[in-house]
Design a protein around this nucleic acid. Structure first.
Lengths: 136, 136
DNA sequence: GACTAAATGAGAATAATTACTGATTGTGGG
DNA sequence: CCCACAATCAGTAATTATTCTCATTTAGTC
């Protein structure tokens, strides 16, 4: 059920958002349960966890390899429809003697809304909320 | 002074580690002061903050553009001596209509020590400590 | 239906970080 | 030297995100 919620959106929801959505169907569900299941799903590989950037973790129903772009104005995270560059890993392997396991790329910018609104960059600690377009 | 500590190492220390080091010279310094100054330095651009990956933030005295490699065994973060690929930003700009401001790349792997020791991946929540080679 | 294992809800606990507070230290005039 | 004023500090309380605990519920199975 938690899985369905995460997969239901192209946004990359925070645990908090998943909780709010889940509660619409299972009003008695607790935040702890949401966290517990998000973690389990991530371990099983059914979803991905995005820690990159700052404060609340985000979850991604799209488990294929892909990059993200993050808005420094509102914290929104979107998938990037661009190819994954494995040369980055090859180059790192040559440089570093690590056993390479993967890589992540995150582009930073201002989303159209924040850019237009002239919203400032809040790289700093703010409790980002997912784009709440379809939610109170 | 906090700046000196951060710049004194190629590791990417956590606030905690900076605190421990700083206290060797200024034994009365408080953790709050360390955080306050780390934040200020980061805002002024004198150091960089690395949030990517999980739990405690790390700080980087090297403010030039560069990539990082993170060991999923011990949490260590190292600089990568490889060139920054601005094509990633160009490609993202074409794809997304964001105002692009920058990008980050993080390679994941196991450092030589963890690899050899067969240490498992602890992607999960652990309080990573910096490589404490020169510290109690 | 009884027994067992797994999952849950509710709230306490933890970890990292920030904010607040009153005390201390500077600093530049006079 | 002394005084106002600003900056910084140590210490601590508060916040945020997340995990843990544990009594209870739910499921599965014989």
């Amino acid at each position: 059920m938690v899985l369905q919620v995460v997969q239901s959106t192209m946004d990359h929801p925070t645990a908090e958002w998943v909780y709010r959505q889940a509660r619409r169907r299972l009003p008695r569900i607790s935040l702890g349960t949401v966290y517990r299941n998000l973690k389990r799903l991530a371990e099983e590989g059914a979803i991905r966890e995005i820690h990159t950037g700052g404060h609340p973790a985000r979850f991604d129903g799209n488990t294929g390899r892909h990059y993200h772009i993050r808005c420094l104005g509102c914290g929104r995270v979107n998938d990037l429809p661009m190819s994954v560059d494995t040369r980055l890993e090859e180059e790192a392997a040559r440089a570093m003697n690590y056993r390479i396991l993967g890589h992540e790329v995150e582009i930073h910018g201002l989303c159209p809304l924040c850019h237009e609104a002239g919203r400032p960059i809040k790289n700093d600690s703010q409790h980002f909320n997912v784009a709440d377009s379809k939610e109170s």
